[in-house]
Design a protein around this nucleic acid. Structure first.
Length: 251
DNA sequence: TGATCGCCGGTAACGAGCGA
DNA sequence: TCGCTCGTTACCGGCGATCA
């Protein structure tokens, strides 16, 4: 997917990328070997060649931070296959509209780690955990989770960031994570099937008020379900988005 | 090589929609 | 309800293709 992409080249739009593919140039190597590419001026071709070589080097070095900078943010989903084994599926709960972070869940797709305010949700612990990953996968994280975490902990996120909300939208999947999960037939544990983001706020308040651990456990389970479902969602959605882009079904 | 024309990308403004 | 980002649209400037 990554090595078939040309979208990161200056003055190459989605339509421009289609035109490159239509000329039989499907791979970076094809582009580098071509003496002339229609739609690319002779003066721009060496500039693009240099950028492709630069990106190729960063891929060989596995330098995810540089790759993240070179690829437009809204096209980071194209890096999923390259980095899915080093990706962190992440979701947060807060105490209200853009309030304090109460629960932070991270998963590598197999194991989950939960961080709870007042227990183990501390900047240095979170920072250390985040550093293990080269990519972050969220739902609406670019608008919510990452800005909130940034404000709460003053953290930077140099990783590749794949926001599944926008990947879903490209294949006409809208309406929030829970609705999309149902449409994609991704199951959620019965106990938290009817829990919403607003309920998560209430669960936190109940836990703080009563000290009854059942509220906290349910909140943690809800967050855990969110992050565990992000992986199957990415696995289902990203190949479909690529198919749309690659075969010009919808760009 | 220079002139012309048309297309395409960049940018700004605004709206939509999602999270808790 | 608030804050945020992305998508859409319109406009403008620049680039590329073509021709003489």
């Amino acid at each position: 997917m990554l090595r078939n992409s040309f979208i990161f080249l200056d003055r190459v739009s989605k339509r421009g990328e289609q035109k490159i593919w239509e000329q039989g140039i499907h791979h970076w190597q094809d582009f580098l070997e071509a003496k002339k590419v229609d739609g690319i001026s002779n003066s721009l071709k060496p500039v693009h060649d240099a950028k492709l070589n630069q990106l190729r080097k960063q891929v060989i070095k596995d330098n995810h931070e540089e790759i993240a900078k070179l690829m437009p943010k809204n096209e980071h989903w194209r890096l999923y296959n390259e980095f899915k084994d080093e990706a962190c599926f992440l979701d947060i709960e807060t105490s209200g509209y853009y309030g304090d972070v109460t629960v932070l869940g991270m998963s590598d797709g197999y194991d989950t780690k939960m961080f709870v305010r007042g227990i183990n949700l501390e900047k240095n612990i979170v920072q250390k955990e985040l550093k293990k990953y080269k990519a972050l996968v969220t739902f609406n994280g670019s608008s919510f989770d990452l800005p909130v975490l940034n404000r709460y902990f003053n953290l930077d996120f140099p990783q590749i960031h794949i926001d599944l909300r926008w990947a879903c939208k490209r294949i006409d999947l809208t309406g929030g994570l829970k609705k999309i999960e149902r449409e994609m037939k991704i199951k959620r544990a019965e106990e938290v099937q009817n829990v919403s983001g607003e309920d998560a706020v209430l669960l936190w308040r109940q836990w703080r008020k009563t000290g009854n651990k059942k509220y906290l456990d349910l909140l943690i389970q809800y967050n855990e379900e969110d992050i565990l479902n992000l992986k199957p969602l990415a696995e289902k959605v990203i190949p479909k988005v690529w198919e749309n882009v690659r075969f010009n079904k919808k760009i």
